[in-house]
């Protein structure tokens, strides 16, 4: 992504070929491989959290079940729909810029960013509710409705997993805002769309993580 800051500024919609690459295809291939490597490390990062969840769920099955029923399924489902739809928007935006439709791409990126804000808004409503109830991690837990041992751990995992995911939403949104700026400046087009593609890939990963978090935290 950042390997393209070498020579004089390219023309409108033209890619910037770094000096250590011989062809544009070679550069694009390397950039894409780098992105997939990064996404692979992200999978491993979240795998650790999922593992922690599964292990504790195995120990405290009843408490985890009871605690998961206490999350708002309506808000969780809404957020799932918001994220899946935002993934569609960003995929369509990628399709648009490849065909040179800069305006359509910009609109779709704005819609994706709005979805990201919507997701964070809904998430903060859920967090506020948990703070009010005292369903908090570790020693701050003082939720009187579920006192079974292990419920505390459920909310620790809940806040850690959704918190790390929300952080990814914020990062993904910032990346998409940066991409949107480039689109509005006319930097991208049918010959130069890798940045839009990679921003989209990151956003899809955010969606992927939520696809697993949602059933494990809200439904099980």
């Amino acid at each position: 992504m950042s390997s393209s800051e070498a020579h004089a500024a390219p023309g409108r919609g033209e890619p910037n070929l770094a000096h250590h690459f011989e062809t544009q295809n070679q550069q694009d291939g390397a950039v894409r491989l780098g992105m997939w490597l990064f996404l692979g490390t992200e999978v491993l990062l979240f795998a650790g959290l999922f593992l922690g969840y599964t292990v504790y769920r195995n120990f405290y099955h009843e408490a985890f079940h009871e605690a998961s029923r206490h999350l708002s399924l309506a808000l969780g489902t809404t957020n799932t729909i918001v994220l899946i739809t935002s993934s569609l928007f960003v995929a369509l935006g990628y399709h648009a810029i490849k065909q040179g439709k800069e305006k359509a791409c910009a609109v779709l990126l704005v819609l994706t960013i709005l979805c990201a804000l919507g997701f964070l808004g809904i998430k903060s409503i859920e967090y506020a509710e948990k703070f009010r109830e005292g369903a908090l991690p570790g020693k701050w837990y003082h939720f009187s409705e579920i006192t079974a041992p292990g419920a505390n751990l459920y909310y620790t995992v809940y806040f850690l997993a959704t918190g790390l995911h929300a952080f990814h939403v914020i990062v993904g949104m910032s990346v998409l805002i940066w991409v949107l700026k480039g689109v509005l400046k006319g930097k991208y087009g049918p010959k130069n769309y890798v940045a839009v593609e990679l921003g989209g890939l990151y956003w899809h990963l955010v969606d992927l993580v939520w696809i697993f978090l949602f059933p494990l935290l809200y439904l099980i």
Partner: peptide
């Protein structure tokens, strides 16, 4: 999502291997 939104169906083999291997090791961990 991976196959169609992330275009893994069109990705070169090296990129697929990287991602699939990371999932493989996550499963191995579990």
């Amino acid at each position: 999502v991976v196959l169609f939104f992330m275009h893994m169906t069109e990705a070169p083999a090296a990129n697929r291997i990287v991602f699939v291997v990371s999932i493989f090791f996550a499963i191995l961990l579990i």
